[in-house]
Structure formats: structure tokens, C-alpha cells
Amino acid sequence: MSLRRHWIDIAALAILSVVALGVTARFALAPRSPELGVAVIFAPWTTPEQTLARTVEAGARFVRFGGPGFVAVAIPDGPDYVAHARAAGAWLIVDPKIVTACLSVVGAVSKP
């Protein structure tokens, strides 16, 4: 079976795919206007308390949690918030307005 024989290649491709997706999300979904609000996504094992504490400590006003407890929507105090939040352990800081993408759930975005 050729799939088994080339499992190293296939595993490398899978890693490349996941890494590329992560990196893309990291730079392409970065907040266009952080002052209007950002969505901060921590590691899945982060507790809501930790999420809240880290979001606020990085320099933002907490607005609400996202779906799971490791996602928070916040309004940054300053323009360096993205860097601070990443330093605080956030995996992704995305623009809440654009994550709806083609689903056009834009109504929720206008209400930070």
C-alpha cells in the first residue's frame, strides 16, 4: 500500500497543512481596528477565570466570553494590545467582525 509506504511524506504534508492554516489565521484574521474590539482565543484548557484575568491584564476591557470559556471578546486599551495578549498566552487574536466570513452573521459584530 503506497499510502503506508509514504507515511512520512503524508505526515509532513499534514503538519504543513495545519501549520499553514494556523499561521494564516494568525496574520490574516488579525484585527483591522483593534479599538473596536478583538476576540482573544487561548489554549482550550484555559479556564474562564484565567481567560478573563489574562485578557484584562494584557490591557483591555472585558466584554464577554465567546462560545467556550477560553475565548474572550474585549476592547483593547491601546494599540499594543495584540502583542501583550500574545505575550499573555493567547493563541489567536482575531477581528470579531471578519470571522463570520461568508456566513454573514454581521449583526452580532456591530454589538461589541
Binding site: 489565521a25 476576540a39 482565543i41 462560545g67 467556550p68 475565548v71 470571522v99 456566513l103
Partner: peptide
């Protein structure tokens, strides 16, 4: 499969993470 993963992550997982209950599963 990759399209599904990429599409789902951008258009379903992320939005549902940010806007609980705000996603449209039917469209996905």
C-alpha cells in the same frame, strides 16, 4: 477534506467560538 477543515475553521468553528449560537449550521 482540507477545504472542509479550512472552511469549517474559518466559517464555523471560529464564528461559533466568537459568537455562540450565532452560526448557521444549515448553510455550512
Amino acid at each position: 477534506g482540507l477545504i472542509a477543515v479550512h472552511h469549517l475553521s474559518l466559517n464555523f468553528l471560529l464564528p461559533s467560538a466568537v459568537y455562540p449560537g450565532g452560526t448557521d449550521l444549515l448553510r455550512v
